[in-house]
Design a protein around this nucleic acid. Structure first.
Lengths: 158, 158
DNA sequence: ATACTGATTGTAACCATTCTTATTAAGTAA
DNA sequence: TTACTTAATAAGAATGGTTACAATCAGTAT
């Protein structure tokens, strides 16, 4: 328990640092800071999961009773264009958003949709290959692993 | 020119083989073959690109003037469930479908959306890592590289 | 032939996302 | 502070891809 709370605090601190950096980097562009934007960014950076636009909307409707869904979408696009946020599109209907733009990947559960982050180095080689094979100027890549999460494995076994 | 036509014929032959195999594997399940299904499969397997459901619908409306869009979607799902076809979901609105289910990846142009296939071996290691890190039972993975295609590089340079 | 199973059609509904317009808030310079 | 300029928000309507549903149709087996 103690260990966990320490972890929590560390994570929180790290995220707040990232949030501060994000706010700073927005200031350097011509993007205005507004209460709504701050709240959306704060939620995303303190969020362990990968929320949909609607998740964010619902999470903030207490604080901003009359915020529009369009505002959430607009600002997510602003953040995405600024490189602060990544959009993840899977087969299911709605996009998910991820504040952690550092190199990491996702493992996704086929049956419950849970998303777990993991780190893996050195896929630069793939980018280089693609660059040569296709003649593209490569910018980034995306990778996901699909499978069944521990909980669902247990559930399926009864 | 001669060389190209030989290439074309080879590709065509290969694809028809794959189509035949696909038809065969459908026969082994309890999926009925219908003219619409045959046409959709044939189009997908002879198609160099990665069409949307609507692309397929439009391409076949001459042959099947009263085919429904629903039929295209229904059958794409049937083929997907049978493992003959892969669904690709990117940021843009509509899914794309890919008949080539062998291990290959895509390079996608950020500005025009062009999709180019390329092959890369040995991402099994990533699956294994994810399995250990997250405790998942891993089934598959997906990877894409994003960048600018040669045409768009040229266009941007004026 | 009859009944059964599954496929197709056409349309309506759904839902995520974007557009439009009026209004409001933020930045700026005097 | 005040007035001005510009961008952001809200609300709701519109868009567009996808799916659900009910009715009809085709193929197959008894």
């Amino acid at each position: 328990m103690y260990y966990e709370s320490v972890m929590q605090r560390e994570v929180k601190t790290m995220e707040n640092t990232e949030l501060r950096e994000a706010l700073q980097s927005l200031k350097s562009t011509k993007v205005r800071m507004t209460p709504q934007r701050h709240a959306i960014l704060e939620f995303l950076f303190n969020c362990e999961s990968h929320p949909t636009a609607d998740d964010i909307y619902k999470a903030l409707e207490d604080k901003f009773p009359n915020m529009s869904v369009a505002t959430v979408y607009n600002n997510l696009r602003v953040f995405k264009d600024a490189g602060l946020v990544r959009e993840l599109t899977y087969g299911d209907s709605s996009s998910r958003f991820d504040s952690n733009t550092s190199d990491h990947y996702h493992v996704i559960c086929d049956s419950c949709g849970k998303i777990v982050d993991f780190h893996y180095p050195g896929l630069d080689e793939v980018e280089t290959l693609a660059e040569h094979v296709a003649g593209f100027r490569v910018r980034s890549h995306r990778m996901e692993v699909y499978g069944t999460c521990p909980d669902c494995i247990k559930a399926q076994a009864h």
